[in-house]
Design a protein around this nucleic acid. Structure first.
Length: 862
RNA sequence: GCCCCGGUGGCGGAACGGGUAGACGCUACGGACUUAAAAUCCGUUGGCCGCAAGGCCAUGCAGGUUCGAUUCCUGCCCGGGGCACCA
């Protein structure tokens, strides 16, 4: 009898069978309903981490389940292969990013295969392949034609040592993360994509995504950030220069309370004033030099300086002084704000600091008002006071009336302002998709013609950390102008890697097409039915993808608006953090596997296994290299096999929740695998068994059969509808506990057992496909388990003659009594009151009321 | 500051439309098997009282609605996340 569970023997053999049969190669079949199940593709960093294993296991379980439901399933995989880590590895090891990336891909692909994911590898793609990124370039050219892509000069973080732009995340305390150099704000020309043109649609369509997590929709809505307000102008005449200072406000109803206006340091009026006053010049330069990071602004002291310039109030004509304020953002609204200290906290503080007048112009719902100290109530909406003929109007009424008056004077109108900015995609980086532009001294910036695509990235360069090697490579740089034929230079900036990931899901449908970006096969597969990935992509990647899909739609490449029908954001994988903090020097982290926990309860403590000395507990956190608390999935697979790894990742918590790593939890999953394996093989050793004759079963046999079919109903619902894989697994474990205790060697008992095990194996097959296939064979089936359909619940098996109902007295549980199934209230009442435990509490008191929930409970109210 | 999500045994968590709180797993303890250990199997495991039968308390805190509240409502406390001089 082969009753020892040996995953290392089972798994490779099953995987070979799938490979040989092309089991997971998806074919377009209009006759079948399609199901496109996609996990966010990985960055090929070297090897898989636990987050990957969790992500792809969730996807694979769903894909396999939907296949059993009769869907034509596509589950592809690719590589988000451009990006900084490859360049950093090159700098450290002197290896070309292309080589490093492709080696990593090969290794990680092997790992994915060893986990038994049902992936259609014939559609594999990597974004660093010219076959792929040429279409980035192609669509970028279409965007240029349509004015969606444009070039302008923007402010960036500039590292003067590395001679490159850094992302905000790469600036730490105002210094470059790699060089430690002081970061400068620089204005350099960059290409932008006009995502703001789609702001309204991207926001409005969020309500059409009911199967996205509420949280993600909220985050996107906040990010897009719609503000409804009024744009108004303060006219000026400064030494004969006439103009208008434009301001955006969401509180036009407070316009009669304006006592100053403030502009950003980059504002033209600030510049004008700076030419006149040395003190202003210094201040303006100071503001400009500050960090480009918005978060830093928030904590900065609010400072300002008067310009001595005056503008006219648009309604009263009164003179209002212009100040330069370091808290005014050039990039939002008009780069200028009207100052209403009476009803804006920041303006209030500013006015107090510089002795500017404070006017109350809103009755804040009768609450006390004093200019001595700020109260949060001052920003409440209320009726206008001290506002001339606007007095008595509420927020909406005043806003309408003021907007109308401004409009008739040509000095303002209602306006919507968005927080969302256009997407700057230029990166002064080597390992990315070249931007297909040629700079000609005569013709300017000339798009590369379609027939010269792709602009290939040379793959043999090794960055050394000083600037972009493309700029030092004549064979790439030097070219001819497509318009005039003169000697010209290629653009050396590459695209943001978020461009690469904004449309890869389309390309999986037509990965082999070298003539078009997408074809009719994309129309068959798109949209993605289920998308699965980390919450960290809630805004950027998912928003860019929604934008890119709409651009493709407007270019006639697709008919869909939304790329992802349904979204599941899986939680992170956490582990304990242990460290030592030497009196001098840096914190040293230790892997939890090297620590023996000694303390219990409130203050966990532990000692290092190697030296027996104490280490400090740092709580629970995401697995990370820097904290050295990662667990290598490969060790898990080597030790327990892919099936146990998969089972553990799906146990204990719902996919959205964080999952705490636990060695004991893995052992628990492994124990379950060994037990079910043994149960199957013990049964099989007794010989073949046919289907049960349901009419002739005795009580325990019928009861087991009922439990089996009840579990089947629950597991199907948990996986298919609720996506709570943890409770599906719990139900299977519960069933397994029943099967172990079911000792009935009669032919009928064995028939019931055979059916139960067949069903358990079918239910397990999406979760632990290798062991399930092997057990399926053992149970006497010659078919491939992956081609089986999800079993149907036998409704007749669920029927019970007698059920147990709960009896409460005054809402407190007092007894459980058996009643015939379908008993009416009278029968249930009689049975309930006859129970001695119930009678004790009723004890002759009059029954005021009796609630009967059929099949569930009786509540006697006395 | 604004927005969102949570708080249930020793631990991770379950309870799906107001109806048996603690499924399932882990830990710990006791037992069987073994020369021994591991593995495996059996049992106990929210707290308190009780020999037992049984009872009382218990889902962050304080109230409310209800025959009945982990679930709904109000206020508060704590934790996590997102956004943040956004005019």
């Amino acid at each position: 009898m082969k009753d020892r569970y040996e995953p290392s023997e089972i798994e490779p053999a099953v995987q070979r069978d799938w490979d040989a049969a092309g089991t997971f190669v998806a074919r377009e079949d209009p006759a079948k309903p399609k199901y496109y199940c996609l996990c966010m593709f990985p960055y090929p960093s070297g090897k898989l981490h636990m987050g990957h294993v969790r992500n792809y296991t969730i996807g694979d379980v769903l894909a396999r389940y939907m296949r059993m439901q009769g869907f034509n399933v596509l589950q592809p995989m690719g590589w988000d292969a451009f990006g900084l880590p490859a360049e950093n590895a090159a700098i450290e090891n002197g290896v070309a990013p292309a080589r490093w990336t492709r080696d990593n891909i090969a290794h990680m692909k092997g790992q994915l295969k060893s986990l038994g994911f049902g992936i259609d590898w014939s559609r594999e793609l990597a974004t660093c392949d010219a076959d792929y990124y040429r279409w980035n370039q192609w669509l970028f050219l279409r965007m240029l034609e349509r004015g969606i892509a444009y070039k302008t000069t923007g402010v960036v973080n500039w590292d003067p040592v590395d001679q490159t732009v850094l992302a905000n995340e790469q600036v730490i305390d105002g210094r470059g993360w790699r060089t430690g150099a002081l970061i400068e704000k620089r204005e350099i020309p960059m290409y932008y994509l006009r995502i703001t043109q789609y702001a309204e649609e991207l926001l409005g369509a969020l309500s059409k995504l009911p199967d996205w997590p509420e949280r993600v929709r909220t985050m996107q809505a906040n990010w897009i950030g719609r503000s409804d307000g009024v744009n108004l102008a303060f006219p000026y005449d400064i030494d004969g220069r006439r103009g208008e200072l434009k301001v955006f406000t969401t509180r036009a109803d407070t316009i009669m309370g304006v006592t100053f206006v403030a502009v950003a340091a980059e504002h033209p009026l600030a510049e004008l004033a700076a030419t006149r006053k040395a003190k202003l010049r210094t201040f303006v330069n100071e503001c400009r030099r500050g960090s480009a990071m918005e978060a830093d602004f928030a904590t900065m002291e609010k400072k300002g300086i008067a310009t001595g310039l005056f503008v006219q109030h648009p309604l009263t004509g009164a003179a209002v002084e212009v100040w330069v304020g370091n808290y005014v953002l050039m990039a939002y609204g008009e780069g200028a704000v009207m100052g209403v200290p009476g009803h804006d906290e920041r303006d209030f503080a500013f006015a107090k600091k510089y002795g500017l007048p404070i006017l109350q112009v809103i009755d804040v719902n009768g609450k006390p008002y004093s200019t001595d100290a700020w109260q949060p109530s001052y920003t409440e909406y209320g009726r206008c006071i001290h506002s001339g003929h606007y007095d008595g109007l509420d927020y909406a009424g005043a806003t309408d009336a003021i907007a109308k008056d401004l409009e008739s004077k040509g000095l303002g109108r209602k306006q919507v302002v968005w927080r969302l900015r256009d997407w700057g995609i230029s990166r002064q980086r080597y390992w990315g998709c070249p931007i297909p532009i040629i700079h000609c001294p005569a013709c300017g910036d000339v798009p590369v013609p379609d027939d010269q695509l792709p602009v290939r990235l040379p793959e043999d360069l090794v960055p050394d950390g000083s600037g972009n090697p493309l700029a030092k490579t004549p064979s790439f740089l030097e070219c001819r102008c497509p318009k005039c034929g003169a000697a010209a230079r290629r653009e050396t900036d590459t695209m943001d890697t978020f461009v690469d990931s904004s449309w890869y899901y389309f390309r999986f449908a037509s990965a082999d097409n070298d003539r078009a970006m997408v074809d009719e096969r994309a129309a068959y597969w798109m949209p993605v039915d289920q998308y699965i990935g980390g919450i960290e992509h809630a805004i950027l990647h998912l928003l860019y993808s929604r934008f890119w899909t709409r651009v493709m739609r407007d270019c006639g490449l697709t008919k869909i608006d939304e790329p992802f029908q349904r979204l599941l954001t899986q939680g992170m994988v956490l582990n304990e953090i242990w460290f030592r903090k030497p009196a001098s020097g840096r914190i040293v982290y230790h892997n939890p596997a090297d620590v023996t926990a000694t303390g219990e309860g409130e203050a966990p403590s532990g000692v290092l296994k190697s030296d027996g000395q104490p280490v400090e507990y740092g709580g629970i956190g995401t697995m990370s290299k820097s904290r050295r608390n990662g667990v290598d999935p490969q060790e898990l697979i080597n030790r327990y096999g892919a099936d146990t790894a998969r089972l553990f990742m799906m146990s204990n918590v719902q996919p959205e929740d964080t999952l705490k790593w636990s060695d004991e939890g893995v052992e628990g999953a492994f124990r379950f695998m060994k037990r079910i394996w043994k149960t199957v093989h013990t049964h099989v050793a007794g010989g073949a068994s046919g289907p049960p004759e349901t009419a002739t079963l005795d009580g325990p046999q019928r009861e087991l059969r009922r439990q089996v079919h009840q579990a089947l109903a629950k597991v199907g619902d948990d996986i298919g509808r609720r996506r709570t894989f943890n409770t599906a697994i719990a139900a299977l474990m519960e069933l397994q506990n029943l099967l172990i205790r079911f000792e009935d060697d009669s032919p009928r008992g064995r028939a019931v057992m055979q059916e139960a095990l067949d069903l358990v194996v079918l239910m397990l097959s999406p979760l632990v496909p290798h062991a399930a296939q092997a057990m399926w064979r053992a149970l006497g089936h010659s078919t491939q388990l992956v081609d089986e359909r999800w079993p149907k619940v036998d409704a007749a098996a669920l029927v019970q003659d007698t059920i147990e109902i709960v009896v409460q007295v005054n809402g407190r549980l007092r007894a459980r009594v058996p009643v015939p199934a379908g008993a009416n209230e009278a029968i249930a009442r009689e049975a309930a009151l006859a129970d001695p435990g119930v009678a004790k509490f009723v004890a002759g008191q009059p029954i005021r009321k009796l609630i009967y929930v059929p099949g569930k409970l009786v509540n006697v109210v006395v």
